[in-house]
Computed example of a mutant assay.
Amino acid sequence: MESFFSGCCVIKATFIDPVPRRFLTVGRTYQVIEINGDWLRVVNDAGEPILYEMALFRLLDQAIPGTWHDDCDQTGFYAGPAEFAEPGLYEDYFDGVPETVEKFEAYRRREGWPPRVVVSNATH
């Protein structure tokens, strides 16, 4: 059975929710790097791969890139780059595990995405 998201192109989505969200710009198009049930992982304005509710976006592409791994089971639909399909990868990324951070950064460079923005939590 062919899924709603089948094919071989890059997936992009436009943020459409009118409620301001940190590191998302209304009307801006973002690179989708994972579909997990009703959630999309997008590279936000700070360059971070964050999960957001799919309802906040309008999908511009509905085809799964040929290099992605996809799966559908009792827990729902999952699709993302094959090299990121390992459990705990994003937890390791946010924990700063060097090998995982480099794996993501290499993918970012290969895809031509802008570098991550280091954001200070300090307020002035």
Rank of each mutant, 00 (worst) to 15 (best):
D38V: 13
Q74S: 12
W113V: 01
M54R: 15
F57P: 02
E91C: 11
W113K: 00
A46V: 08
H69A: 06
T100N: 03
R116Q: 14
C8N: 14
K12I: 10
S120F: 04
V118D: 02
D38W: 12
V101G: 15
P81N: 04
I11P: 01
D17K: 08
P98L: 08
V117R: 01
D45F: 00
R108G: 09
C72G: 07
A63V: 06
P81G: 04
G66L: 00
Y78F: 13
P81A: 10
G66S: 11
V97C: 03
A79K: 07
T67S: 15
G76S: 11
V32H: 00
V101T: 15
D92F: 01
F23L: 06
G88I: 09
I35S: 07
E99L: 11
D17P: 01
P81V: 07
N36C: 13
E102C: 05
L60C: 08
P87D: 11
P65R: 05
L89P: 02
L56G: 09
N44R: 11
P98E: 07
Y30E: 03
K12Q: 11
D61L: 10
D71C: 10
G96H: 12
S3K: 06
D71V: 09
L59T: 02
A13P: 05
E91G: 12
P65E: 02
W68K: 05
D17Y: 07
P114S: 13
I50P: 00
L59G: 02
L56S: 07
M1N: 04
G47W: 00
N36T: 10
Q62D: 13
G80L: 15
I64L: 12
V43C: 08
